[in-house]
Structures are given as structure tokens and as C-alpha cells.
């Protein structure tokens, strides 16, 4: 089984069926199902979700990237504080970073004010957080490997050559 290729295909398009994946990889469908189940069990595949561009819906959303500088704990380092932050459902991702700050946290709320309040009330007050810097997302050009911006969207201009 070409395991890396299977994961890459699913990462690109999680809607591909096991039958399609099997044909594309030249593998047995049953083997593909087994491999996927194994990935899910081991946690290599952590979920499947649609890549929604909320800017093109009626729903209002506001996202921000928050840089946190924190004091690592003596025994647990950054893990404990990251663990606390992760618990908030408003938090989409938490990364430990190299460079000028420690944790990069993305937060999504209904409005910018919601997000700002969340940072003020929930994040900044956590024991060990030294400072926060909130950067609001103004627009998403590309997310999850996919172009979101209309001006840069794929247009199939082919079909005008009458020879090839």
C-alpha cells in the first residue's frame, strides 16, 4: 500500500470513496478500507471536514491570530498552558512557535468584539501568560491549500485551441 499517497489523496479530497481510492492507487478496495480504519484508530487521520469560506455566506465570523508570550512551567514546559488554552471551544488551533513569541492561537467568534473579549477575559488572564498580541484576519486568500479569493480562483480557459 502506498500509504503516503493514500493520505495525500484524502487530505486533498476527503470525499473520495474507498472504491475510487483503490482504483487510483491500483490497490484492493478492502485493503484501502483497512488502511483508512487503521489510520483513524492510530490517530494519523484526525477527522474530516468541509473547507468553508464563511465570507461567502450570510453568517458573520471573525477570526484572529493571537501571539502569546508565556512562562513555561518547571516540569511541564509549555504543555500545561497549551492544554488549558485548547479547552476553549472558541480556539481553533494552538501551535508552539520558534521565534519572538511562544504560542500562536487562532480564535474564531461571531464578531471582532467577541474575539477581543475572549482574549481579554479568557486568554490574558491565564496564569503564566505574559502578553497577548491580537491580529484580526481581514480576508482569507488561501486556506487549507485552497484559493478563497475570487480574483485568483481557477478559471478553465482551455478549449480554444482547435488542434491539440
Amino acid at each position: 500500500m502506498q500509504r503516503e499517497q493514500l493520505l495525500e489523496l484524502l487530505q486533498d479530497d476527503a470525499k473520495l470513496t474507498a472504491a475510487q481510492l483503490a482504483v487510483m492507487l491500483g490497490e484492493d478496495e478492502h485493503e484501502v478500507r483497512k488502511a483508512i480504519a487503521q489510520y483513524e484508530k492510530e490517530g494519523a487521520i484526525r477527522g474530516y471536514h468541509a473547507l468553508v469560506n464563511w465570507e461567502r455566506t450570510e453568517t458573520q465570523k471573525a477570526s484572529a491570530l493571537i501571539e502569546l508570550r508565556v512562562t513555561p512551567k518547571k516540569d511541564t514546559g509549555f504543555d500545561e498552558i497549551a492544554g488549558r488554552i485548547m479547552n476553549f471551544p472558541e480556539v481553533e488551533s494552538v501551535y508552539l512557535m520558534s521565534g519572538g513569541y511562544d504560542l500562536a492561537v487562532t480564535v474564531t467568534g461571531r464578531t471582532m468584539q467577541d474575539v477581543a473579549m475572549f482574549v481579554q477575559k479568557r486568554l490574558a488572564t491565564i496564569d503564566g501568560v505574559l502578553s497577548t498580541a491580537t491580529h484580526f484576519v481581514l480576508t482569507k486568500y488561501k486556506d487549507g491549500g485552497v484559493v478563497f479569493n475570487r480574483d485568483y480562483e481557477e478559471i478553465d480557459e482551455r478549449g480554444s485551441n482547435l488542434c491539440d
Binding site: R158, G159, S160, N161, L162, D164
Partner: peptide, 18 residues
């Protein structure tokens, strides 16, 4: 076939060589 296709909406083409 390109000419016909160009006149239509929701055409799915498997015709190009590029």
C-alpha cells in the same frame, strides 16, 4: 464540438489536449 460546447451552459468537457 468545441463550437457546440461553447454555446452551452454546464458543459462537462473531456476534450482538451492540454
Amino acid at each position: 464540438y468545441f463550437d457546440i460546447a461553447n454555446e452551452m451552459e454546464d458543459v462537462i468537457s473531456l476534450s482538451v489536449g492540454e
